[in-house]
């Protein structure tokens, strides 16, 4: 390196392009290595198998009178099971909801039973039951008896969990 005859103006390497190429290749390989090595760590933060195994919940419908609701836990989330009165069914069938219009028939399997995930679609608080639907205490979103958002900051209707009736008075959620 310390060749005194060489002036500083001259390049230090014979073939600068070759060196550039080596630098680029080293950078790319190192970058790819870091990305690959970080994958297990990122993935480890996703739900573990025991959390995933909480995927289904069996819920009994006995003992819920018309107009009453019950909350069950599914994947750690509350699920509202509402047994609707004839009046409520009539009102809900007649309306399309609020800012996220949807027919009541698309949100139920049996008109008596409304089953929705009890987390406000705004920021995930649990809305509290009121006579004409639900009201979220966090930021004031209002839902009707079909779980459709009427007003407030919530962007969409209460989510519908996948469920099926295994008998007249028992459902499996998930």
């Amino acid at each position: 390196m310390t060749d005194d005859n060489k002036s500083l103006e001259e390049p230090l390497v014979d073939d600068p392009e070759r060196r550039d190429f080596l630098n680029t290749v080293t950078g790319v390989v190192a970058g790819a290595g870091v990305v690959a090595a970080s994958w297990p760590f990122i993935s480890s933060m996703n739900p573990s198998s025991d959390v995933l195994s909480k995927a289904t919940t069996e819920a009994s419908l006995t003992g819920i009178n018309p107009g009453e609701s019950k909350t069950v836990e599914w994947q750690g989330k509350p699920v509202f099971i509402l047994r609707r009165t004839d009046d409520q069914i009539k009102n809900m069938t007649a309306s399309q909801g609020g800012k996220d219009p949807e027919a009541d028939s698309d949100r139920i399997q049996k008109p008596d039973w409304l089953i929705v995930v009890g987390l406000c679609t705004h920021l995930g608080c649990v809305p509290s039951r009121s006579s004409d639907g639900w009201f979220c205490p966090c930021h004031g979103s209002k839902y009707d008896n079909s779980g459709r958002v009427l007003h407030g900051p919530a962007p969409s209707n209460l989510k519908l969990p996948p469920y099926k009736f295994v008998s007249e008075d028992k459902i499996v959620i998930g």
């Binding site: 996703n46 739900p47 959390v51 987390l119 920021l123 995930g124």
Partner: peptide
């Protein structure tokens, strides 16, 4: 839940952050 506002990835991002379907 604020991270749910991220377009496309929102729901997956929340679950990844929490490591569960809700805070657990």
């Amino acid at each position: 839940s604020l991270f749910g506002a991220v377009p496309f990835l929102g729901d997956e991002l929340i679950i990844w952050l929490r490591g569960d379907f809700t805070v657990g």
